[in-house]
Design a binder for these strands. Structure first.
Length: 262
DNA sequence: CCTATAGCCTGACGGC
DNA sequence: TGCCGTCAGGCTATAG
């Protein structure tokens, strides 16, 4: 689930449910997911405080507390947030549950434990430490920066789009959609793509991310021209109706239409 | 330096 | 039904 559009949806969800509410208690069910912080430190940074603002960079969500610290959420492949009132609605793999004074709770669920929770003085430090590239929805992400990133890598374009050090936020699913919308085949070297097509790819990156955020990252709401809802074993191209092809690129399964993507 | 791969962890699914 | 292998939208460390 959690690529950039999903994490942006989580961020807005946290904003609309959990901001400015005093935290009474924090239960850490899986301390092994804490990175660089002890359960006691994390509890101390949260209990008695509230969340006052959020930020997202790539696939990372940051929530600032009234004490000034930032809680860092990463979701791995299976993470999500859920705001609920009755403890019976606590999600099945809640790794941390935050109780608010109003009686509601915010659960961080992460079935496969590939996510992480951290604490930082400011979010920029986390971005730097992880050497993340620009977020494609930030003003700093321009055609020039994108073109340079694609020129300097030797990887195939799908892998390049997924490289968080080149640009942050795109994963296996959305790289397929972006390449489909741009009409570019996933297996060609990023540096061999013409300037014109790099420009088209740049706009596809922005358009796909913006559009899918509007859809709250829910494939059922995606436009009919989108590949993602057809991205399965016997899926057909929504544009020409031919069989989609699947192939591994650096270990990840990619789907594409051999006739619409050159 | 670079890129591709194995491994982390858990659960769902298909084949035998 | 039960077991086993494979696969899944993440990242990192390591090998080549």
């Amino acid at each position: 689930m959690p690529e950039l559009p999903d994490v942006e949806t989580f961020r807005r969800y946290l904003d609309s449910t959990s901001l400015h509410q005093e935290i009474s208690k924090v239960a850490i069910h899986s301390p092994e997911l804490l990175e660089g912080v002890t359960p006691a430190e994390l509890k101390a940074a949260l209990e008695g405080k509230s969340f006052v603002s959020t930020h997202r960079h790539g696939k990372y969500l940051f929530a600032q507390t009234s004490g000034g610290k930032w809680v860092v959420f990463h979701f791995g492949m299976t993470g999500f947030l859920k705001y609920f009132e009755d403890m019976e609605e606590e999600p099945p793999h809640a790794r941390m549950t935050i109780d608010f004074l109003n009686g509601w709770h915010l659960g961080y669920d992460c079935q496969r434990k590939l996510g992480e929770i951290g604490l930082a003085d400011d979010w920029q430090k986390v971005v730097e430490a992880r050497k993340m590239g620009p977020d494609p929805l930030d003003p700093g992400f321009t055609l020039d920066t994108f073109g340079e990133a694609m020129r300097k890598t030797r990887a195939v374009v799908k892998s390049a789009l997924m490289n968080q050090r080149l640009l942050a936020g795109i994963g296996n699913i959305y790289s397929d959609e972006i390449l489909f919308q741009a009409g570019i085949q996933p297996g060609i070297k990023a540096k061999d793509i013409s300037k014109d097509r790099i420009e088209r790819l740049f706009y596809s990156v922005k358009e796909v991310l913006e559009e899918t955020i509007k859809c709250k990252a829910d494939p059922e709401r995606f436009p009919p021209s989108y590949l993602i809802p057809h991205r399965h074993g016997d899926g057909k191209c929504p544009r020409c109706g031919n069989d989609l092809q699947q192939k591994k690129f650096s270990g990840r399964t990619g789907f594409f239409c051999p006739s619409c993507q050159a």
